[in-house]
């Protein structure tokens, strides 16, 4: 198994710089999360890795050689914008896509049978693709990335549009792939998914890499400035704390709140207030900030808080916590 290495890569479109001198590495047996708001340059970066477009400067190598037709055969790519041939039957569709990756018919058919069974979709091979529901088509497309046993996977928002059960199945398979020692690149907006799956992260903003490293290192860099509180009773004290500028609450429901401490407020100040005003406290914990908050912090510095908040919420799917729930 081999490393994917992106070295000082730059891409410009009509004078606008989409990717600006970006470098990072993805290693076998680990999942690298590629994060960033819209227009950060994620898709362009992925397209250079998949050899769909060429960098204007810098280079992308896989297993020591520049990416090209050979590396394409070893990559499984699930683009963010999904798509299949509507009129083809599922079996034909998968066989065609596998053959384009250099798999022979016989092997392709075996793999198709195997993976359709794994996805509880055995009877689908003879169905026309446009007769399938959107979620079913998602599964078919995911299977298409697996058929040629790639050693490098690139998943762009793989969970979007999947129900919790299927998202669970997908997550299991991705973790199995990691255990097999393949290299996985995982692009997403959904920070809780990234937190759950990724070993390393790269955060891009406006074409530049702004944060990079193993997930735990990145989080510890931001310290334990976040408080999680679960309680029963009146929550007006939270509004007061926020108004006084002592905390900023980023996640709040009737009995639970997650907040960042502001202006050097000690964590015990929150606890004292809570003890004074609520009827019961179930849980109090001081933790590192969630990735979403780090994302917003970092991107705010780059682009302003509005852009950051908007893009961190933008693509939250209808079914929340598809992965986190399990």
């Amino acid at each position: 198994m081999a490393d994917l290495s992106v070295e000082h890569v730059t891409k410009r479109y009509n004078g606008a710089t989409a990717v600006d001198d970006v470098s990072f590495e993805a290693r076998p047996g680990r999942i690298l999360g590629l994060l960033g708001p819209n227009g950060a340059g994620k898709t362009s970066t992925i397209r250079m890795i998949t050899h769909i477009i060429m960098p204007d400067a810098g280079r992308v190598t896989y297993d020591g050689a520049r990416v090209g037709p050979t590396s394409q055969q070893r990559m499984g790519y699930l683009p963010e914008e999904r798509g299949l041939y509507k009129k083809l039957k599922v079996g034909e569709q998968l066989r065609y896509l596998a053959e384009l990756k250099g798999v022979d018919r016989h092997t392709a058919d075996e793999k198709i049978t195997h993976w359709l069974r794994r996805f509880e979709a055995t009877g689908w091979a003879d169905k026309k693709t446009d007769e399938l529901s959107k979620g079913m088509q998602q599964k078919v497309q995911f299977i298409a990335t697996l058929l040629h046993d790639p050693s490098l996977y690139i998943f762009d928002e793989p969970f979007s549009g999947l129900d919790p059960l299927n998202a669970q199945l997908l997550r299991d398979i991705i973790l199995e792939l990691r255990a097999d020692g393949v290299t996985i690149l995982f692009a997403s907006h959904r920070m809780e998914q990234v937190e759950q799956l990724c070993d390393d992260i790269c955060l891009m903003s406006q074409g530049r890499l702004v944060l990079e490293g193993p997930l735990q290192d990145v989080k510890s860099r931001f310290g334990r400035d976040t408080v999680v509180l679960e309680f029963e009773g009146d929550d007006a004290f939270l509004d007061r704390l926020e108004k006084e500028g002592r905390v900023s609450i980023h996640n709040r429901s009737t009995r639970r709140a997650e907040m960042r401490l502001q202006n050097g407020t000690p964590a015990r100040r929150v606890l004292e207030d809570a003890m004074q005003h609520t009827s019961e406290i179930y849980h109090f914990e001081q933790v590192a900030p969630p990735l979403n908050e780090i994302f917003i912090d970092v991107v705010s510095e780059e682009q302003g808080a509005d852009v950051a908040r908007r893009s961190s919420r933008e693509r939250d799917p209808v079914l929340p916590d598809a992965v986190g729930a399990s």
Binding site: T50, H51, I52, P69, Q72, Q73, M75, Y77, P79, E81, R82, G83, L84, Y85, K86, L97, L100, K101, Q141, A144
Partner: peptide, 17 residues
Amino acid sequence: IEEKATRVVEVVVSSVR
């Protein structure tokens, strides 16, 4: 146009030129 509209083209050009 169909390949482009259904976006399947992106998968295909990640396999062939």
